[in-house]
Nucleic acid binder design. Structure first.
Lengths: 145, 145
DNA sequence: CTTGACCCTGTAGCGGCTCCAGGGTTTGAA
DNA sequence: TTCAAACCCTGGAGCCGCTACAGGGTCAAG
């Protein structure tokens, strides 16, 4: 099957399929006479697996490591469990960070309810004062807008 | 004061100060004879404000809009309140998304406790099956690793 | 024989920095 | 006075995971 069909079946943009190939996550398939990529069912399975992991917010390096752990012949589950645990830890940390953040935003928000000149706005005043230091950890789980 | 002192006082990397200037968030200061940036107290105040907003996970365009709303002469609080409400909404959405994600990860995690060959791992099997579709909204509030 | 859907490669852009190379300046001590 | 360390400058590349081009080739239906 050609890239368009593969992409449709895996619910993944065509450009992203090519991107995964370039990044070494998805094996390069053989090519047709016209230099078109020609995929088989195993490619679809693998792509679907990758997409599933992405929908769980795993990073590409994490997915790479997971695929390696799965494909190492005779390997047991332990490294797979560990990878998942680590990812769950990332997510839990991010949730905790965002909950703290939301509390702080809410506490700032109560300082104003409109109908005042901006120069007297309690929100602006609060934002102008230094905050208690919040730790900023490195994390791959992404943003809130 | 020179850029190093400003950065130290605002607890902000020097490169980031230059970046904010390039992005139009922080006014370009006058220059010394040696072409060094020379800042005054208002610059420090403004930079501290920006950093405080960043620590609350606002995007640079959000901060820009906030500064505009504050500096429009005679403006009232309403647009400021609205900006903050919108941001709080982003954060709340991201928290809800991550909570759903964590539940799903936890439910996958219980399928394995090591000591099995990877080929029989319940986690791998679960990851290989399609998930219920989760909506993926655009958001600026960032990741969990 | 033309239209339109598909495919190819390569490159640039998003946000918000961070880091580097390759230079110039200032400051303090020997 | 001379030297090193610490500071400053600009411009450009890199991070992640795509996304969106530009500029071309291929193929099937009408």
């Amino acid at each position: 099957m050609r890239i368009g069909e593969l992409a449709r079946r895996a619910d993944c943009p065509v450009e992203t399929v090519r991107y995964y190939e370039k990044e070494g996550l998805l094996a390069a398939p053989r090519r047709s006479g016209a230099n078109y990529r020609d995929y088989g069912p195993p490619h679809l399975e693998r792509l679907a697996f990758i997409r599933r992991c992405r929908s769980l917010d795993m990073s590409l390096p994490e997915i790479h490591a997971l695929l390696d752990a799965i494909e190492r012949p005779g390997a047991d589950c332990a490294p797979i469990d560990a990878l998942l645990d680590e990812h769950i830890g990332h997510v839990a940390t991010r949730i905790a960070d965002l909950n703290r953040l939301k509390e702080e935003l809410d506490s700032i928000r109560v300082h104003c309810a409109g109908r005042r000149p901006a120069s007297a706005c309690g929100i602006v005043e609060t934002l102008s004062r230094p905050a208690a230091k919040r730790a900023r950890r490195a994390s791959h789980v992404r943003g809130a807008k």
